[in-house]
């Protein structure tokens, strides 16, 4: 920067010292633009910062640039709305239910190897010995994902026939699912 300015200032000083060369009254400066361009007087020279890059260099530069892009899921930038919150909850509850299903199925298969007692009679006897609050909490932990995924699954099946697909209807059915989930999961837990 400093060097550029120094060169610029020295050119200005040169112009001030030799007025005849740079004066506007010079015959060359008064020529019509085509002639001025033809004689090379008004040619602009712009310093452009270019450098040759090989294809492999360009590839690695672009790849390293892309590493700086925001990574999805970038959840914090979205306003919480019932549409996408319930959509995410549908996958989370489904994963919880299926995860529990898979863990129990696999554990039941290997239980003889490790001497675990996973038959329902033993599990029921163990569950009966829990304090009431723990029983209610465990039942809610199962009943909430089960009822939510069930009701929201019916909502998905309604969408699949092409019904209730505009934004207002999606919001309304979303709140219906939330209401049904709260009532039915509490009812199941207190059963």
């Amino acid at each position: 920067m400093l060097r550029q300015r120094a060169v610029q200032q020295s050119i200005r000083r040169l112009a001030a010292a030799n007025l005849s060369t740079f004066n506007k009254t010079t015959s060359l400066a008064q020529l019509a633009p085509p002639v001025a361009i033809a004689t090379g007087r008004h040619t602009q020279i712009r310093q452009a910062a270019t450098q040759p890059t090989s294809p492999s260099d360009a590839y690695s530069i672009l790849a390293s640039q892309r590493l700086h892009r925001p990574v999805s899921p970038h959840l914090k930038i979205y306003r919480p709305q019932i549409t996408w919150l319930l959509s995410g909850l549908n996958r989370i509850t489904g994963s919880i239910l299926s995860g529990g299903f898979y863990i129990f199925g696999a554990a039941y298969l290997v239980s003889p190897l490790f001497g675990w007692h996973l038959d329902t009679a033993t599990l029921a006897a163990g569950f009966a010995s829990w304090p009431l609050a723990a029983q209610l909490a465990a039942k809610m932990a199962v009943a909430f994902p089960f009822t939510f995924h069930g009701w929201n699954g019916i909502r998905h099946l309604i969408w699949d026939v092409g019904a209730a697909l505009n934004n207002q209807q999606v919001i309304r059915t979303g709140w219906v699912v939330v209401g049904l989930t709260v009532v039915s999961s509490l009812a199941l837990a207190l059963l």
């Binding site: 299903f101 898979y102 129990f104 199925g105 696999a106 554990a107 039941y108 298969l109 290997v110 038959d119 329902t120 009679a121 599990l123 029921a124 006897a125 569950f127 009966a128 829990w130 009431l132 029983q135 039942k139 059963l191």
Partner: peptide
């Protein structure tokens, strides 16, 4: 998990009855 549930279904009371049994145990 499929083999595990085959064992469960053939040796135990079944999924629905099993859940009911544990659910009402308390």
């Amino acid at each position: 998990v499929g083999i595990g549930f085959y064992e469960f279904e053939t040796n135990d009371v079944g999924l629905t009855q099993g859940v009911k049994r544990i659910w009402k145990a308390g």
